[in-house]
């Protein structure tokens, strides 16, 4: 993967393209992320109920693949879903994948 593509994935998005964390249909937590870095940080901060809600709807993969345009990371999250993690296991699993991916992308600069 080249530097140009990596920097695209790491860019900061406009507010309307941010990821908005909900705990259920229509219940917005007030937390949002406009970049992969912010998304990675927020995974540790938001209520685990919100993570479970989005994870099992496929919202994380969708946003990462379609908005951040990181297909590889989206696939890694899809693989995690096959293991059906919940609660802290889900939080830790997501964070581990995201921090790993973020570090690899950053290391190319």
């Amino acid at each position: 993967m080249n530097e140009k593509m990596n920097s695209k994935i790491l860019r900061t998005l406009p507010r309307e393209k941010a990821f908005y964390f909900f705990t259920s249909i229509g219940n917005y937590t007030g937390e949002s992320a406009t970049s992969l870095k912010e998304f990675t940080d927020k995974i540790n901060e938001v209520n685990v109920k919100s993570l479970e809600f989005h994870f099992y709807r496929g919202d994380f993969e969708k946003w990462i693949a379609e908005v951040l345009e990181d297909k590889e990371l989206a696939e890694q999250i899809g693989t995690l879903r096959k293991m059906s993690p919940i609660g802290e296991k889900l939080k830790n699993g997501l964070h581990r994948i995201l921090i790993g991916r973020y570090s690899r992308l950053r290391s190319t600069f």
């Binding site: 908005y20 249909i25 229509g26 219940n27 007030g30 949002s32």
Partner: peptide
């Protein structure tokens, strides 16, 4: 479609702190 509308058109409005929705 309710969720889609709230997530894409209401939550991003500047000044929105959080939302509670009751069906």
């Amino acid at each position: 479609s309710l969720h889609e509308f709230i997530a894409s058109s209401v939550a991003p409005l500047p000044g929105v702190l959080r939302i509670r929705t009751s069906m």
